[in-house]
Design a protein around this nucleic acid. Structure first.
Length: 272
DNA sequence: AATACGATCAACCGCTCGACA
DNA sequence: ATGTCGAGCGGTTGATCGTAT
């Protein structure tokens, strides 16, 4: 149906919790078609949602390989360690915790870990309150704006980094065949394995981070800092990180699935 | 049993960034 | 150089549930 001006009337978009039927529709669509463009997914899948909502639902709830339930002690330590170096970079922290989403980690931090962290850092707590007081007075005097005060958490977090050693430990090297453009390892998995299992058989143990590149992004620099801290703390398992998993479909189409939740299908076996 | 309160977590919102025309 | 669009990220909200009073 069209309006007088010839426009298609905007369908009222649903909000709020997803129904099991909606979940099934979205899951079925992405499994069979992938998602080239999230904005078209709800239209093609017959959902009265916006693309953003579909993307979030897929990433945080529907995509395979997600761990549900409580965080292990090891996961907690990893989050605390990474947060001390990266700050509130939840998506980057999530990359080091396979099966956990940034949203999940963020919620866990705010509901539990933050308190635990503050309790274990009485000195920092004092520093923080001093900083906050200083910031408040500066704000009231108009010397800094509110946005600047928001970085205080990072000021405190990065204090720990000052204690890191000056030289980086030797980095593991990978052959070129195991590397993609940004230097991340790509484990492969048959698409059917992924479909049939809620727990994709990803060999995290063979995934390693890259060697140094001449032009580093901020993320890569962050990775190095994290790795340095991890080595100091003997978190060698943190290096077993996969940034992307590639699935091979039985019909020789490649279904590419990022840890960020991206998913698409290509015929190009060399697609990296 | 009823109410208040706090904790948890799914989902939304607004902003930034990068790609592309 | 500029504008537009889509994707992604982090902050925030609000519904729900469990527990205390």
């Amino acid at each position: 149906m069209m309006t007088k001006s010839g426009e298609r009337p905007k369908q009222r978009q649903r909000k709020g919790l997803w129904s099991p039927e909606e979940d099934q529709k979205l899951k079925n669509f992405i499994i069979s078609h992938g998602h080239a463009c999230w904005t078209t997914v709800p239209i093609l899948a017959g959902l009265q949602r916006n693309g953003k909502s579909c993307r979030l639902r897929w990433i945080n709830y529907l995509r395979p390989g997600l761990k549900r339930g409580t965080f292990s002690a090891e996961e907690e330590e990893i989050i605390l360690t990474l947060h001390s170096s990266l700050g509130n970079k939840w998506s980057r922290i999530a990359k080091y915790l396979p099966g956990r989403t940034d949203n999940e980690i963020k919620n866990y931090w705010h509901s539990y870990l933050k308190k635990r962290w503050l309790k274990s850092q009485p000195q920092l707590k004092t520093q923080r309150s001093n900083l906050t007081e200083s910031a408040s007075s500066l704000v009231s005097c108009g010397k800094i704006n509110l946005q600047e005060t928001e970085t205080l958490d990072h000021v405190i977090s990065f204090e720990k980094l000052a204690e890191k050693p000056s030289s980086s430990p030797p980095q593991p090297q990978l052959s070129n065949t195991n590397m993609m453009n940004n230097g991340k390892y790509l484990p492969k998995l048959f698409f059917s394995e992924w479909i049939s299992s809620s727990n994709p058989h990803i060999d995290y143990s063979s995934a390693l981070t890259n060697s140094k590149h001449s032009s580093q992004t901020q993320d890569q620099i962050d990775d190095e800092e994290v790795m340095m801290i991890n080595n100091n703390n003997n978190y060698s398992s943190l290096e077993d990180v996969m940034l992307r998993t590639e699935f091979l479909q039985p019909d020789h189409e490649y279904a590419n699935y990022y840890s960020s939740g991206d998913f698409f299908i290509t015929n190009d076996p060399n697609y990296v």
